[in-house]
Design a protein around this nucleic acid. Structure first.
Lengths: 168, 168
DNA sequence: ATCAATTATTTTAAGTATAAAATAATTCGC
DNA sequence: GCGAATTATTTTATACTTAAAATAATTGAT
């Protein structure tokens, strides 16, 4: 019988193999986490220092920048993977600071529409430019051809995880 | 001095290339962030549901599990990338719940030594086993040979980012 | 038209993250 | 040994996350 290395049924695999895969999966997860926290921490720090802004605040502006006519408030939590309860004070403060406006819809008075102000748009563009430059600085040593490949692999990883979450 | 990196003189690269690399870098970062938050969110949720435990609490136990004779309290923030101020209540509660002990050192009474209790060790092993199984479930669709390659690439990415942070 | 069910949003509460300031103990030069 | 500097830890303050409960407006069935 041939020693099929791939797709061997789990029942016929010895414990050592199982353990090895466990370790490989854990290593992958730890690397992923390390890379993300490293970059995220630096971006967050710079946002705070340069603009007194947090990432969620920036993310809200980023969404609104793509919607010149504004966005239904309830759409933001869906797009940003942020809970609605958490969004409220963030939007409150963005309104207070003059970056966005919040007005009730005429069609459905439960719904509120948030829209970027002119100054908000200007401020966002400035921050987005810095954001891009910071990322370029942090990723400067990653060869351009590697960027694409890694992005694709992460895309597949995301799909695999999402599928696994769908199953049960 | 310009903000952007200049491994190739800017003058010889056209703006479109520059923009393309910016976009590729941003895409990579967004994928990285998406994968991590997806997995992290699921692990966090299960930890809470199954064990009423948070990731930082688990991480502290994971560190102590490798140190049978205990660990100087001040060592934990360094290893876990968690601030000392934040660690205090976490350790407080682990002590309160009987997972660990905290005793002043004889040699240096400023220093406290934290050590896992027998029950703490047992509880940790149980949780670690679940953690491994959850990860295996989430990463089940990632081919074994891809695991290694991706881990290696992320290692290089981490190194590149770390180098970039060192420079200034 | 009215009332229960649905949907949108806000509030509340407990926990965690981060940074800065405060407190406490120790070490080292003198 | 004494006292300033260092180091360890805690406290404080602000912000964010999450889930659950509360509030408010609208829809749909009768």
């Amino acid at each position: 019988m041939a020693l099929a290395k791939e797709s061997t049924p789990v029942s016929t695999r010895n414990e050592a193999d199982q353990e090895a895969e466990y370790r490989a999966q854990t290593r992958l997860w730890l690397r992923l986490l390390a890379c993300t926290t490293l970059i995220e921490g630096e971006l967050r720090r710079r946002f705070r220092e340069e603009f007194d802004f947090t990432m969620p605040r920036f993310d809200v502006l980023a969404q609104l920048d793509r919607e010149p006519s504004g966005l239904v408030l309830g759409e933001l939590p869906k797009r940003l993977m942020v809970s609605a309860g958490n969004l409220t004070p963030i939007v409150d403060r963005l309104v207070e600071d003059g970056y966005i406006t919040r007005t009730p819809s005429n069609l459905d008075r439960r719904v509120q529409i948030v829209c970027m102000t002119v100054e908000g748009r200007k401020a966002f563009r400035r921050m987005a430019k810095s954001h891009g430059a910071w990322l370029a600085e942090l990723l400067a040593d990653v060869p351009a051809d590697r960027l694409e490949g890694l992005t694709g692999e992460l895309d597949e990883l995301k799909g695999a995880v999402r599928d696994a979450l769908q199953k049960p």
